[in-house]
Write a protein that binds this DNA or RNA. Structure first.
Length: 571
DNA sequence: AGACCCGGCGCC
DNA sequence: AAAGGGCGCCGGGTCT
């Protein structure tokens, strides 16, 4: 059995072509043509040791999913790996399509990446329906040969990383990012269980009945708007308009710097309270109301599109539906199917633990060896004041200098010199125009040309350039932590997916599966009788991720795990 | 009418 | 003095 098989679906039809490869990417025998690609893939997958090599999961895996009897175990996603490699090689942001990588390999002009479907630049025409067209290969080029060649080149570039440890970690990143592509495609296909009836009831309680005329304000919102108008003297204004709101308050002698709710909460006037309430409800109505339900949550499932590596730090992004910003109150609508349960697990205080592991600060690691990190930090350095401990550490990780946190930072610097030195070195690198990397080797973007102009001009005067340099320092300071946390989360996801696939089930339809992933939190939808085993699998996956990403560290990454019927009951 | 930016706020 | 990192999405507002 070949360890790797390159796979290219036919653009129109169920067939495709396959090419067995060795681990270096060298073809083992001739390519094969399959009239039914799903059947051929399923047959080759039997023992679960194949690593499938494809141009991109959205064109190769997503169309296959409905026709596969079970999920695939492993893949190498050329587009995602190309982006990782380019950044690592100092070519951040170069086009990453199969065609672009192929063109670079042959010294030909490199085609730009096509805009994502659904984005502003995309015409969303028919051509986007045929995913292979997005690969940007020149006419006449053989897609299978291109996949084989680009994969071999990527393997070569991986081998070229000199340092053994760095190479091993980067390979782990490549595998974890690719596993993410599998998870993202599967979660988009399966969807998050979503009870439209409960969602509807919640909306009705909060906003009033669904308006008959789409686009008009539901009753409670309309009432609030009217009350607000009365409270500010009765002259009509649109509460959705920032400028009109500022003017309406100013007319009553209340000068606001903005209409942000934290500022309104400090204003002692009935209108301020009404406006805060209006904004809260209006947000739910416009962002996750009935229109959202019609567009995204039909047939009992919410189906967003996840974008693996969509954030430079390696966090995922989403396209459409605001999948990663579901208001907590609406988690009430996420309910397991009858006979099924949700296992909800989130990493407790992930980022400070990542800082402890990255910096190998012995003192901070001791606070991160057990339960509540902030509690331990408070006990050892802040006279038991947990709030101060948390504020100080978050400020250190985000580069905050405002408020009263100066003394807190000084305490941290004194007690945890290695940890503070780590983030401060990252900040200095950024301020100087350098790049930093995550634990596994994901490299941050370099400064823009604008940034370089701005900071050079600032050599003589500390103005916009100095501000810009400090902003970049905050970015790189946070990047090392956020991106290393994303490394860990991806490793967790990959390990968990593998463990779920190994659970004994009667058939694929009874298999526990991931339905949600949000930075440091996972939700698994599982038959009720397997829920305890899933909870064990999540904990084991978290510890496996710790070992893989950070090696021998005393830092622990505990999860808060809940087995629930409804997502809202998890916290 | 459509492109674009901004303020604001949801999530981590 | 300056003043917390990363996103996506909405409506308003402005420009073309």
């Amino acid at each position: 059995m070949a360890p790797r098989i390159a796979l290219v679906p036919d653009p129109h039809g169920p067939g495709g072509r396959l090419q067995p490869l060795d681990d270096a990417g060298t073809p083992l025998g001739p390519p094969a043509t399959a009239p039914d690609l799903a059947a051929a893939v399923a047959a080759a997958e039997r023992d679960g040791t194949v690593r499938w090599v494809w141009a991109a999961a959205d064109s190769a895996y997503a169309p296959l999913l409905p026709r596969l009897p079970d999920r695939l175990a492993r893949c190498h996603d050329l587009r995602l790996v190309e982006a990782l490699l380019l950044a690592h090689e100092g070519r951040f942001g170069a086009p990453r399509s199969l065609g672009a990588a192929w063109a670079r390999l042959h010294g030909l002009p490199v085609p730009p990446d096509l805009p994502e479907p659904g984005s502003a630049e995309s015409d969303d025409g028919q051509d986007t329906l045929f995913a292979p067209d997005r690969l940007q290969l020149p006419p006449g080029a053989d897609p299978l040969a291109a996949v084989v060649a680009v994969h071999a080149e990527q393997q070569r570039r991986l081998t070229a990383i000199r340092d053994d440890g760095a190479r091993a970690r980067f390979r782990l990143l490549v595998a974890a990012e690719s596993a993410g592509a599998l998870v993202a495609a599967e979660m988009a296909y399966d969807g998050l269980p979503w009870r439209a009836d409960i969602h509807d009831r919640l909306l009705t309680e909060l906003l009033g009945p669904r308006p008959g005329v789409p686009g008009s304000r539901p009753r409670i919102l309309a009432d609030l708007a009217a009350e607000l108008q009365q409270a500010l003297g009765g002259r009509p204004f649109n509460p959705d308009s920032h400028t009109q709101v500022l003017r309406a308050f100013a007319d009553r002698g209340i000068q606001l710097g903005s209409t942000r709710s934290w500022e309104l909460k400090g204003v002692d006037h009935p209108a301020a309270r009404l406006l805060v309430r209006y904004k809260e409800l209006s947000r739910i109505h416009t962002a996750h109301g009935w229109a959202w339900q019609d567009a995204w949550a039909r047939g009992g499932r919410f189906r967003p599109e996840y974008v693996v590596g969509g954030v430079v730090s390696g966090r995922w992004a989403s396209r459409g539906g605001g999948a990663l910003q579901i208001p907590r109150i609406l988690r009430r609508a996420v309910v397991a199917d009858p006979g099924w349960l949700l296992v909800v697990a989130d990493a407790a205080q992930l980022e400070p633990r990542v800082l402890a592991a990255l910096s190998q600060d012995a003192g901070l690691a001791r606070t991160a060896a057990g339960g509540d990190l902030y509690e331990a930090l408070a006990a050892s350095a802040f006279h038991g004041d947990r709030d101060k401990a948390k504020l100080g550490l978050l400020g250190a990780m985000y580069g905050q200098t405002s408020g009263d946190i100066g003394p807190l930072l000084n305490t941290l610097r004194h007690r945890y010199p290695a940890a503070m030195g780590y983030v401060e070195a990252a900040a200095r690198t950024g301020e100087d125009g350098g790049v930093v990397a995550s634990r596994l080797g994901r490299v941050c973007p370099p400064p823009s040309a604008d940034w370089l102009d701005l900071t050079e001009a600032a050599e003589t005067a500390g103005d916009a350039g100095g501000r810009s340099a400090r902003a970049r320092g905050r970015f790189t300071r946070n990047f090392v932590i956020q991106a290393s946390a994303a490394d860990w989360a991806l490793a967790l996801l990959a390990a968990l997916r593998r463990r779920l696939a190994a659970l004994p089930v009667a058939g694929p339809a009874d298999r526990p599966h991931l339905v949600f992933f949000q930075h440091d939190e996972v939700v698994v939808h599982t038959p009720a009788n397997l829920a305890d085993e899933v909870a064990v699998a999540v904990a084991a996956a978290a510890d496996e991720a710790r070992l893989l990403v950070f090696g021998d560290t005393p830092v622990r990454f505990p999860l808060t795990t809940a087995v629930v019927d409804c997502y809202a009951d998890a916290k």
